[in-house]
């Protein structure tokens, strides 16, 4: 079974090496012997407050926190890497892991209190709902009207090709699991996606692996706008240091909202600690006031001007675009649209 599933995804990750490509890592020592090994796609600066809060309630538990890309996380868990908890924003990959039997079930008061759409079979639990937004540079947009729909954005890009030449950024969906999820869901939901991709493709777009870098480049003025950025990161950056250089724009016609989810991998050792952290995250996900936390709760999408279409559904439909044949077809179309030169 494992090697069969692996075969399916071999085409996805042929370039990957057997070793884990770690982006960041930190060890939070506790007073006791037990260690909770967490693998996550959330940057340390975003997630450190959660870990601190958790450790203050469980001081005996050390936390080993590893940051990887969503695809890397998926591969690691599939290969049986020794982690106790996997947190990822790529809900399709997380769902596939749960569906294929790589997740352990967990049930507690906190998880049963989650709304139905925020959990699946007591295997996978959502704790944030985060929208995809457009981030734009205040400086580069001087004198331009701010688009509120994809159609307006298409018109704007067509009107000022010289301004946007080489200055439009978006995910490279071939590398980024989250970018792929955003792109496929958007292509399914609105026909404006392919029109926009065509227009962006003519402007020599910059392709990125991660939201953070895109936001950095917008802040530096290297990009005029970044399309489909994770709203929570943008908001966090905005709160931190942009000094008005960055603006967040939610699309009024349609907005993707993803759920950041947690699973306990099948081979987890410290399941009690993992369950406790899930319970804390699930309770935070159900909070009514945004509070001081970097990531938004499930109840609101985090950006005020975003129309709430509800998050992407956790269900087997998520596996459709992960199918190698579908993926190959989608990537071909995407490449045709975005790489015109």
């Amino acid at each position: 079974m494992r090697h069969a599933c692996l075969a399916i995804f071999l085409s996805l990750f042929t370039t990957m090496l057997a070793a884990l490509e770690i982006e960041d890592h930190r060890f939070f020592p506790g007073t006791g012997e037990r260690v909770l090994k967490v693998i996550s796609t959330a940057d340390l600066e975003v997630f450190a407050p959660y870990l601190a809060a958790f450790q203050s309630s469980q001081p005996g538990l050390s936390i080993d926190y590893t940051v990887v890309s969503s695809a890397e996380l998926y591969r690691a868990i599939r290969n049986g890497a020794a982690f106790d908890l996997a947190l990822s924003s790529a809900m399709d990959l997380q769902f596939q892991l749960a569906n294929d039997g790589f997740a352990k079930s967990h049930r507690s008061e906190a998880t049963t209190a989650l709304p139905d759409w925020a959990r699946w079979r007591d295997l996978i639990f959502a704790f944030t709902a985060e929208p995809a937004v457009v981030v734009l540079s205040t400086q580069r947009f001087q004198g331009l009207y701010l688009p509120t729909t994809r159609q307006e954005l298409v018109t704007l890009l067509r009107e000022y090709p010289e301004r946007f030449e080489g200055s439009v950024g978006t995910y490279d969906v071939r590398d980024s699991g989250l970018g792929y999820l955003f792109a496929t869901q958007e292509a399914r939901s609105t026909d404006a996606y392919w029109r926009l991709s065509e227009v962006m493709g003519r402007l020599n777009p910059q392709l990125y692996c991660c939201s953070g870098q895109m936001i950095d480049d917008v802040a530096e003025g290297r990009l005029a706008l970044a399309y489909n950025v994770l709203g929570s990161y943008a908001a966090e950056r905005l709160a931190r240091d942009s000094g008005g250089r960055v603006q967040i724009l939610g699309m009024q016609d349609f907005t993707n909202v993803i759920l950041r989810t947690a699973i306990i991998p099948e081979g987890a050792q410290e399941t009690a600690g993992a369950g406790a952290l899930i319970d804390m995250l699930a309770r935070l996900g159900q909070r009514d006031v945004p509070g001081d936390w970097p990531l938004p709760p499930l109840g609101q999408t985090g950006a005020d001007n975003v129309v709430d279409f509800g998050p992407i559904r956790l269900g087997p439909a998520l596996m459709v675009y992960l199918d190698p044949l579908n993926r190959r077809a989608f990537l071909t179309e995407w490449e045709n649209a975005l790489e015109q030169r």
Binding site: W120, V320, N326
Partner: peptide, 22 residues
């Protein structure tokens, strides 16, 4: 032979229950 997994093929399975799909 080519095919395309339709989104609805799996979303209808997800709609009736929380069951694993292969």
């Amino acid at each position: 032979v080519r095919l395309e997994l339709p989104y609805s093929a799996f979303s209808m399975l997800g709609a009736i229950s929380e069951d694993r799909v292969f």
